[in-house]
Design a protein around this nucleic acid. Structure first.
Lengths: 180, 180
DNA sequence: AGACGAATGTAGCGACTGCTACAAGCGCCG
DNA sequence: CGGCGCTTGTAGCAGTCGCTACATTCGTCT
């Protein structure tokens, strides 16, 4: 049984690599199967349907990203809010993380179109990052919940601006924000 | 010749309605043609290729949205920054505008995947709204450029949060923002 | 050895994609 | 009237999509 689970994890890892490289919109069964070294037939056999496959793949990618972020930004580093935000955005803009933001925006777009599954996954990811962020902001931050929400919202806005090539606007926004 | 242009505009309007209703990802030639009362053959004939069609469609939708926003929020209304942002977000969350935000997030996702055309369209739209917003904030706003950037970024972040069902987080962020 | 279920390969289904070749209809000008 | 060019319909191409039926192999247990 752990044999099966192992096979699935190996497949998921290979497919995750493929999705990060080629985007989620190109994640159809046959290319994914090719990347995982099997056939589309086998993917359906192991995951039941494409929807369930994508669901598992997104969860895999989410925890993958979470682990990477934990590694790059361990908690309790006593950074100011300003420095923390700057570091996170610098991180998200770096090449290894950019692939994740592409997929993230794909999830958001599909969620916005009423796709319940993607909305659930996306909501869960954001919930995870509210906790994650709270552990990285100074413990004595006033109105912690509000600050976390604001930082998260500005980060999401920055990702949108980056996507359409208006990073400077996002930088100006952050500068203006920390003027107060 | 104006006959042709008229035909194209009629088609664009019908296709825009279809795209708003069914999302941009479902905007393949045959459904669009059906919505416009013609055939895929004719769409290619009039627009040259699907890429050019989508390009024109997005520009049409952008100016359509701009006109609607102008109608709902004329300039120089002497609102405070807070009230202005609140009104814009209330507007974007209302039903007639939600369809546009779905398409907007689709554009952003495709732009993030390196699609130059979508990135260009998206960048142009944001540029338009920086001008648009500046004419609606109080003229004596200190650091106007920075404020516009911040407001725009927060609005984009709010749209992401709304898409994945975390509107409350965006609300908390706005509240925290206007506490200073 | 034989039986059984899990795993896997082959081939194919029907629907859809963007796009095109061909031909027929149309009005317009000489 | 005759031809000419713009517009349009029909049919089809080659490809991809998610998914399935069928048959086979494989390891395991009796």
């Amino acid at each position: 049984m752990s044999e099966i689970r192992n096979t699935r994890n190996v497949m998921l890892e290979a497919m995750a690599r493929h999705a990060l490289e080629h985007g989620l919109s190109a994640a159809s069964l046959r290319p994914l199967a090719k990347a995982a070294g099997t056939s589309d037939r086998m993917l359906i056999y192991h995951f039941g349907s494409k929807d369930r496959l994508v669901d598992e793949l997104l969860h895999f990618l989410a925890s993958d990203l979470a682990a990477k972020l934990d590694g790059s930004l361990p908690p309790n580093r006593a950074l100011s809010v300003h420095d923390c935000v700057t570091e996170i955005i610098g991180l998200l803009r770096s090449k290894p993380f950019h692939a994740y933001t592409r997929i993230w925006l794909d999830i958001v777009a599909k969620a916005s179109c009423g796709d319940g599954s993607h909305r659930r996954v996306g909501g869960g990811i954001i919930d995870g990052y509210t906790d994650w962020l709270e552990k990285r902001l100074p413990a004595d931050t006033p109105d912690m919940a509000g600050t976390v929400a604001l930082v998260l919202t500005v980060i999401e806005g920055t990702m949108v601006m980056d996507a359409i090539g208006r990073s400077l606007l996002a930088d100006a926004a952050r500068e203006r924000l920390f003027a107060c």
